[in-house]
Amino acid sequence: MSEIKLGDVTVARVEEMHGPIMPAATFFPSIPAEAWHESALGPDHLVDGMVHAAMQTWVLRSEGRTILIDTGVGNDKSRPAVEAWDHLELDYLGNLARAGVHPDDVDLVINTHLHVDHIGWNTRLVDGEWVPTFPNATYLMPRIDVTFWDPANHDGLVGSVNENAFADSVAPVRAAGQVELWEGSHTIDANLRLEAAPGHTPGSSVLKLHSGGDRALFAGDLIHTPLQLTELGHSSCFCEDPVTAAATRRELLGWAAENDALVLPAHLSGHGALEIRNDGEAFAITQWAPFDRL
């Protein structure tokens, strides 16, 4: 199954790529080595000490609109800090088409935050110029992250994973007049609401779904591995403010557990989304969503 229904909202999962990202000890330097159990996390999330993850887009159809949540790494882009992402040639648009989505059909693009692996397909290369991939869409971006990642306001981007990302994946969409900035919270429609979730980046956000009797949390980079359900206080090496990220994680996962909400992070491989329950001071997986395994 590649598509589910939550209340009146249809949710599909579109993959860009998946596989090993980096060693567990590098990705999560504060998680004790003995906490990583391949018998529990493999083969979807941990293999030979390497964390596995997916780059993917959640496609929502709500109140007659087609909405994309995050747009992966992108093709043709110069990513000197991450060799595996440098000048990619992937069939992401073909995967979107197989999910019934043509770029012209997209009404709204949500970038939960502006890390390189969430904004890449905002644009594509046409005749040597970066142009918006989704010409009819409004791109919702957190104002705080736009300010934070703008090279004019940020020292030290050279050599970072976000080197070049603002110039090729954000600035062209702004120049086209397609960006809407928001902060605090932002209501999209009767089913969907964006909320600030700071820590991973200053402007990180999540999308909450309330439709009929269903609830869901499109969690962005709230977690990168299921191990963070039990190791709540440990953030990834890419979190700008690890302490705030941990507090945000605990709060929002608590909301999901209390409301029986499906949690749909940006990067989990395998079935990609899960239901959780309170388990003492942490959380446990109740069940995985019925999406096909990556």
Score class of each variant (00 low, 15 high):
47 V>L: 02
39 S>E: 09
145 D>V: 00
181 L>M: 01
278 N>P: 11
231 E>D: 08
192 L>Y: 05
224 H>A: 10
241 D>N: 14
205 S>P: 14
240 E>K: 12
230 T>D: 02
47 V>N: 02
156 G>H: 09
276 I>A: 13
2 S>H: 12
94 G>D: 10
76 D>G: 01
269 S>M: 14
284 A>H: 08
163 E>H: 12
34 E>M: 11
144 I>L: 11
224 H>Q: 09
131 V>W: 05
33 A>E: 15
271 H>G: 06
109 V>Y: 03
237 C>V: 15
258 E>S: 13
115 H>L: 06
206 V>W: 01
216 A>C: 10
160 S>G: 05
138 T>V: 07
215 R>M: 10
288 W>C: 13
255 W>S: 10
160 S>V: 09
180 E>T: 05
221 D>M: 00
189 D>S: 09
121 W>S: 02
10 T>A: 09
94 G>W: 14
43 P>R: 13
100 G>S: 13
104 D>Q: 02
70 D>G: 08
167 A>F: 07
181 L>D: 00
14 V>A: 14
185 S>M: 12
231 E>Y: 03
283 F>W: 12
30 S>K: 13
265 P>E: 14
290 P>S: 12
293 R>T: 14
263 V>M: 06
78 S>N: 05
86 D>P: 06
159 G>P: 06
264 L>I: 11
254 G>T: 11
179 V>R: 01
223 I>M: 04
29 P>R: 12
189 D>Y: 03
272 G>H: 13
213 G>V: 11
207 L>P: 03
15 E>Q: 11
204 S>A: 15
29 P>I: 14
151 P>W: 10
189 D>A: 00
143 R>V: 04
289 A>T: 13
111 N>K: 12
215 R>T: 13
129 E>F: 08
291 F>S: 07
